[in-house]
Amino acid sequence: MLWYKSWLETRWQFLIGLVVLMLSAAGTVIAYPKVMKLMPMVPTIDVSGELGRRIREAAELARSYRGYVWSQSFGQNLTQMATLFAALLGSGSPLSQGSRGAALFTLSLPVSRNRLLTVRAAASLTELLALAVAPSLLLTLLSPAIGQSYSIKDALAHSVCLFMAGTVFFSLAFLLSTVFSDVWRPWLLACAVAVVLALCALVIPELSRYSIFRVMSGEDYFRGRGLPWLELLASAAVSVAMLYVAAKNVARQDF
């Protein structure tokens, strides 16, 4: 029943996230023919600096469908939105005193605090996995509709990257939810951390190779270097550590 409760408490975050990410994936596929029509214009664009480099790189990647999908979806939209929704799913502890909390009723049940947190985290992580896998598979499913193909292996590999690196933002929000009683402060703080990390990677190019967004986008896999297992395991380890601290926080809390 705790799973059911977790589902009821997170379903709207999950369903909205699913719709948004699926629309984004579908939009990427459907826009491809139009992008191809615009491609001849790209060499005439003369923009210098980082922006110009990125436009030229995107144009270069778009010469192949696989490159286009990676640069538009996994390199940008899906990664950014998965970050926001991972943080949203992690926000709002099952024991928060907010209006949806009814914490005292929950705590009056013959269930340990650890079990309450574990079920909530597991339920939300399952939803996060679905948010990572479903849009990626949609790319594979929709591609034939525009005469292209996108391998299921690529879709699943990128799903793994999206999910495992995304758990860092989920766990961060989950940890913050044991400190703050509302949903929004943990989410906003986790998003702020994501923005800071993204800016650091942008401003200091040396850091970009260690960026979590690089792991999330599966860039190494896309460029033929295989899945970044070390980075993925590091992400998982950081997530587990934050979930552990969250459990310790709740264990010593008074309600």
Binding site: L8, S99, G101, A102, L104, F105, S108
Partner: peptide
């Protein structure tokens, strides 16, 4: 409990 807190969404 004093506030009769239950799950509003159920």
């Amino acid at each position: 409990s004093e506030e009769k807190e239950l799950y509003d969404y159920m």
